[in-house]
């Protein structure tokens, strides 16, 4: 378990900053646990024969919601619990299989404050295996603008998770 007691504020973050890299050795258990935790019973995430002979992939592979969960963990390991995800968009160009060591690396692409005063960092996260890009993810995460600010208190029109991020 990672310790996420840090609290990154907007002033701490600058365009070009890199997030601490995460490398993780993926096993069949990683894939199956992730799929079942997401209530995803589709066989390509737990049945080798189905994945190979029906899907045409080389093995069972990590499912979409579990990839999202890995990205969330990666981002909030960095931001601490006051970081609040607003939007996440990712494209899976390749699959993550048992035996892979996946590496998540992130770079801050934009830092801004919206019209409500909410602070945002836009982070590009790349999930690679052996240096090959498998998934890229653009995430917009709200960060406190001061030590006593907390993005989680925002509701209604004070919370605008879609502004400024291109589709």
């Amino acid at each position: 378990m990672t310790a996420t007691t840090t609290k990154v504020t907007l002033a701490d973050v600058h365009v070009g900053d890199t997030l601490p890299e995460l490398a993780y050795r993926v096993t069949a258990t990683t894939i199956v646990l992730g799929a079942l935790a997401a209530r995803d019973w589709r066989p390509m995430h737990h049945d080798y024969d189905f994945a190979v002979n029906r899907n045409g992939t080389k093995d069972i592979f990590m499912n979409t919601p579990n990839q999202a969960a890995w990205f969330e963990r990666f981002l909030t390991d960095w931001s601490g619990p006051t970081g609040r995800l607003g939007r996440m968009k990712f494209r899976m160009k390749g699959s993550v299989f048992p035996g892979d060591t996946m590496v998540l690396a992130g770079t801050v692409e934009q830092v801004d404050t919206d019209e409500t005063g909410c602070g945002w960092a836009t982070v590009l996260v790349r999930l690679t295996v052996d240096g090959e890009l498998m998934t890229d993810c653009t995430a917009r995460i709200a960060l406190p603008t001061t030590d006593d600010d907390n993005p989680w208190t925002r509701r209604g029109d004070q919370w605008r998770p879609v502004a400024t991020l291109g589709s």
Partner: peptide, 18 residues
């Protein structure tokens, strides 16, 4: 229960969930 299982699956130690 599912929250703990999901966090466990990605080793997410965010104290918000624990």
């Amino acid at each position: 229960g599912y929250i703990y299982t999901s966090c466990s699956s990605v080793e997410n130690g965010n104290p918000l969930f624990w």
